[in-house]
Every structure is written in structure tokens, then in C-alpha cells.
């Protein structure tokens, strides 16, 4: 059992290699055909001479033929070197390692909040389908989905920071005067807990709250709607009727019989939503000055800084593959019929 499990994961990892290679080549070419010359951008001033630019081009390897540049790049990736960022002056690997936890912490918290809300809402919506409650929940979902996250972010800041002052200054992960915990996982909430600093934890949680809620509201709609639709299908099936005929308590029918069988499409949606959020939360990261990978990649893109953008896209591809693998494994745990194959 465990052996076949491991073999399947290995097979999946192998199968994803061509896709990764495709992503690498594609982003590499894309970055080179985009207008803009990094050498010009990074030359010391607007009146830098041609000689200075050429010198920079040579130093950056931009004067060599493209296939050779690509080969260098791929060789670098294999040894764990994603190149250097010209804007920060640091290796891209270092930057990403420093910023990825911030993005992951925000995304995971938002996803958790969203699930906490959308599962009960979806259950109520499906159980009392077409009732007034159902209508209200569906309207709420539509509203949440229609408002762009940067608008709801500014609205939330206005209400909770500016008017009521309930949350701290919405910039960054932590107040600059708060001593940072020892870097263990990179997740501030976890690190504060591990180092036993409740005050710091509260501080970090306060900073995290608004951006997380903003993102959670944005993905509330797909999760609730999928929960509702999937539950409705399941609740019309024969085994729910059996459970009712056998006189099982309602909450047991909802949780063990209906929800458990409805989980499969919900899990798939969670996987998609998570991957989308990780890349698409750039707006939220910008509004809240959140030091995440998405805003990092955007800054690099504006500066024609190839290496960070390529690194970011590669990171997203790897994360996407891992999330899909995780979802598949969970599917097997949720539905015994899947693992039979």
C-alpha cells in the first residue's frame, strides 16, 4: 500500500518534469522578447554612454547567443542558482526564500478563513435550497466576487483602521519596532508561538488580519458555490434517502453522509483557488505593502529584471504541481473508490 503510494508520487514527479522544462524555456523566451533592455535600465544614468551600456550587457551575459544564455540558465537552476536580482542585488533564491513564507502565510490564512466561512454557508445554502437563507447567501457571494480585492482592501482599511482604529497600521507584516522572532519557519505566527512571544504573535496576527480577510472574501464565492452545488447533487442521491429512512440524526446525515461525499469537487476547487491566490494576490500585497513574492515579481517585471520573474514563474509552476499532487492524494483518502484504480 505504502509502496504503491510512493511509486505513484514518484511517477507524478517524473511526469511533471516536461511541464517544468516547458515553463522554463517559455518564460526565458518571453522575457527576452519583451521590450526593454535591462542594461539601459541599470546603466548609471540617463546619459550613460554606449560604452557603459555595452559593458553592462557583456557583464550580464546579454551579448551572447540566446541558446547559450538558456543553457547557462538551466545549468544554474539544476545547481539551485536562479541568478541574481539586479534591483535588490541579492541572489533570486535568497530573495524568494525570504519572501515566500510571507506570501504563503497570507494565502493559507486567507484560504483557512474562507473555508471556515464558505463550508457552513454552502451547507446552509444547500440544505435550505431556494429558501430565503439560500437567496441571501448567494447574493452575498455575488457581491464578494464582484468587488475587486484592492477596492475591498481600501474599504476595510478605511473602516477598521481609519474610522475605528481596531487594527494596526496596515503596512507590512509587522511593526518595524517589534523585535522579530528567531527565523524558524518564516511564518511569523508559527515562529512567535515557537519562541513563546504572545505579544509579538498578537501584533503579527493584527497585521495579517485585514489582508487575509480581503483575500478570503474574494475566494468566498467559488468555494461556497461549489460546496452548495456538490452537496445538492449528493443530497439527491439514494444513500441520503437510506440514511433518512434509517432515522439517522440530521447533523450526522449532513456531515458524515452528505459532506464527506461532496468533498471531492470541493477539494479540487480548493486546489485551484489556492494556486490562483498565490499568484494573483499581488494587488493585496501592494495595498498592504506585504513583502511577498508576487509584489517582488511585479517590481522585477517593471524593471526588466529577468532573473526574479523567471524564478517566480518557476516557483509558481512547482507549487502548482505540488498542490495538484496533494489534492490527488487527499482525493484518494476522501473517496475509497479513487485509490482502487
Amino acid at each position: 500500500m505504502m509502496q504503491t503510494f510512493r511509486r505513484r508520487i514518484g511517477a507524478r514527479a517524473l511526469a511533471s518534469l516536461p511541464a517544468l522544462l516547458g515553463v522554463i524555456v517559455f518564460t526565458f523566451i518571453l522575457m527576452r522578447v519583451l521590450p526593454g533592455d535591462p542594461a539601459v535600465y541599470f546603466a548609471s544614468g540617463p546619459n550613460a554612454g554606449q560604452a557603459e551600456i555595452d559593458g553592462l550587457r557583456h557583464k550580464m551575459g546579454l551579448d551572447r547567443p540566446m541558446p547559450i544564455q538558456l543553457a547557462h540558465y538551466v545549468a544554474g537552476i539544476v545547481t539551485g542558482d536562479l541568478g541574481n536580482s539586479l534591483t535588490t542585488g541579492q541572489p533570486v533564491m535568497h530573495d524568494i526564500r525570504a519572501r515566500l513564507p510571507a506570501s504563503l502565510e497570507l494565502t493559507l490564512t486567507a484560504l483557512g478563513l474562507s473555508l471556515l466561512l464558505s463550508l457552513p454557508l454552502g451547507i446552509v445554502s444547500a440544505w435550505y435550497a431556494n429558501s430565503r437563507w439560500d437567496q441571501c447567501i448567494r447574493t452575498l457571494c455575488t457581491i464578494c466576487f464582484c468587488i475587486p480585492p484592492f477596492v475591498s482592501a481600501i474599504f476595510l482599511i478605511y473602516v477598521f483602521y481609519y474610522i475605528f482604529g481596531l487594527v494596526p497600521d496596515p503596512t507590512g507584516r509587522i511593526n518595524i519596532f517589534t523585535p522579530l522572532p528567531h527565523d524558524i519557519t518564516g511564518f511569523l505566527l508559527v515562529d512567535f508561538l515557537l519562541t513563546g512571544d504572545p505579544a509579538g504573535w498578537r501584533e503579527a496576527a493584527g497585521q495579517l488580519l485585514l489582508p487575509a480577510v480581503t483575500m478570503a472574501l474574494f475566494v468566498l464565492s467559488p468555494l461556497t458555490r461549489m460546496t452548495r452545488a456538490s452537496l445538492l447533487t449528493v443530497m439527491n442521491s439514494d444513500f441520503i434517502r437510506t440514511a433518512r429512512a434509517m432515522g439517522l440524526p440530521t447533523w450526522r446525515i449532513v456531515t458524515v453522509y452528505a459532506l464527506r461525499n461532496a468533498l471531492s469537487p470541493i477539494l479540487t476547487t480548493v486546489g485551484i483557488v489556492f494556486s490562483t491566490m498565490l499568484g494573483a494576490n499581488v494587488l493585496v500585497e501592494k495595498v498592504f505593502s506585504w513583502p511577498g513574492v508576487a509584489s517582488y515579481a511585479l517590481d522585477a517585471l517593471v524593471a526588466s529584471d529577468y532573473a526574479p520573474v523567471q524564478g517566480f514563474i518557476l516557483l509558481m509552476a512547482i507549487l502548482f504541481i505540488m498542490v495538484n499532487l496533494l489534492v490527488d492524494i487527499l482525493q484518494g483518502l476522501v473517496d475509497p473508490r479513487v485509490s482502487m484504480e
Binding site: 434517502r241 429512512a245 434509517m246 439517522l248
Partner: peptide
């Protein structure tokens, strides 16, 4: 329901919960 009046359905495969072991369904 179930204790005094019980029902046996057509198409038994669909009438049982596909993601629950049969002993657990009986225990339920």
C-alpha cells in the same frame, strides 16, 4: 424511522454510502 418501520430500497449499491465502511454504516 429505522427502529420501528424500516425500508429496503431498490438498487442497493446506490442506496449505501459509497465512502463509508459497511460495518460503520450498520453501527450508525
Amino acid at each position: 424511522r429505522g427502529a420501528s418501520i424500516a425500508m429496503v430500497f431498490q438498487n442497493p449499491r446506490a442506496a449505501l454510502n459509497p465512502t463509508r465502511r459497511i460495518c460503520d454504516q450498520l453501527s450508525d
